[in-house]
Write a protein that binds this DNA or RNA. Structure first.
Lengths: 217, 217
DNA sequence: ATTGCTATTGTACAACTGTATAGCAGCGTG
DNA sequence: CACGCTGCTATACAGTTGTACAATAGCAAT
């Protein structure tokens, strides 16, 4: 007794909305299935859509994954930055909040790490993904340099070279994040935060001489 | 005028030798092609052998990749350790040499990073690879703990918690290695070594309080 | 109610994947 | 020289992949 054509077979959506939905579905698929989640059919299924639709909105699957990479990286950075500057705190407190946000449960979820591995492994072969990597890494580095710059202006803090310090801090954060993702039991988030704070304290105490100004290497 | 059957179509090899050759070919293939290099046909082509031979010597391609992972990780660790304890030096010098070996040109070659990404991305889905990861990470951590233990015994060095310190140092090394692999121009190997040395110096100066003994977190 | 634009589907395509298996052939043994 | 063990090849299989394209159909404008 069902009336014919009561429920439509699919719903149209404006390109912008559909593209965003596909990017979101890609993220879910990558988190769930890792590298195999980057397949057109897997993503389409996750989005509840036919595989052909991907090529209608994106030139290729790689381009969709690249868009997903950019969207995710920028969104995470924004969220961490927002958490860091939420209070009118001292520069050191802002850094601490940045660290805390970097090791929040959502960032340590295993699926996120696997998605990131997909992005990284595509850098070598796909120019679009490589471009996203450079852009997002630059933004990340600039965010750290900005926070470090505020700390450097504080009293009693020796002049250190901002750019290398930012790169070094990014490495430390990445290394701890990867270690925590690969080996969940190795340490607790609070320990990672403490290690980052220790590093900052050492930097501000002049205990990291290779980063002090006036040196060449 | 070629005499018939002058050149044989293939050469037999004892299982041990052939297995080693397949592992070596896998390494080359992963370095060259990244994730796509983990295909049975690609590896077989690299080894100059038919695809079916892989399943004759290994239960599956994943098992071959896992064997390659273990072989490579252990070989690299041995090589770094050997370089570190070559001299009858002080513990601090041994650590410095460990760092230098960790950022030698061979370790920073882009292909190596891409091979590593393949290993890591298989951890989530393949139990064999996961087992290798746990074993090799354990060996790596133990090596660092051993070196750190010698440093801790030195004069004027405060008692620090060995295990967390080893994990933290492993994270720092990994983070710098990844940063250098992803972004070759970010810093030079010597800077990475200097950052590691700075960290050790800070640890020995008691400037990393979260790692000092007698604390719980 | 009909028209028309176009987002969407469904399918076809060639190329690829890992693995199983039947038989060929290298090479040590007699 | 012939035998036979077994490492090895070649092929077949059912599955996957990304992309292209004709046909369909949602839905807004009229």
């Amino acid at each position: 007794m069902a009336r014919p054509r009561q429920i439509p077979k699919f719903r149209r959506a404006p390109p912008t909305v559909r593209r965003e939905a596909l990017i979101e579905a890609t993220l879910v698929s990558l988190r769930k299935y890792g590298h195999e989640g980057a397949s057109a059919r897997r993503i389409a299924a996750e989005a509840g859509v036919s595989p052909g639709l991907i090529n209608h909105h994106f030139p290729s699957v790689s381009a969709l994954v690249a868009a997903c990479y950019e969207s995710l990286a920028m969104s995470l950075l924004r969220s961490i930055q927002q958490h860091a500057r939420a209070t009118d705190a001292t520069p050191r407190e802002r850094l601490r909040r940045f660290f805390e946000a970097s090791f929040a449960p959502a960032l340590l979820e295993p699926g996120l790490f696997n998605a990131w591995l997909v992005f990284w492994s595509m850098i070598a072969h796909d120019a679009g993904v490589r471009a996203v990597q450079e852009r997002t890494y630059g933004a990340y580095r600039r965010a750290l340099e900005s926070l470090l710059g505020q700390v450097r202006g504080s009293e009693g803090v020796p002049a250190f070279r901002l750019r290398p310090a930012g790169i070094a801090l990014a490495s430390l954060l990445d290394g701890l994040w990867i270690e925590a993702s690969l080996n969940p039991g190795a340490f607790r988030p609070a320990e990672a935060v403490a290690l980052c704070e220790d590093w900052i304290n050492a930097l501000c105490a002049g205990a990291l001489p290779s980063l002090l100004a006036g040196r060449q290497s």
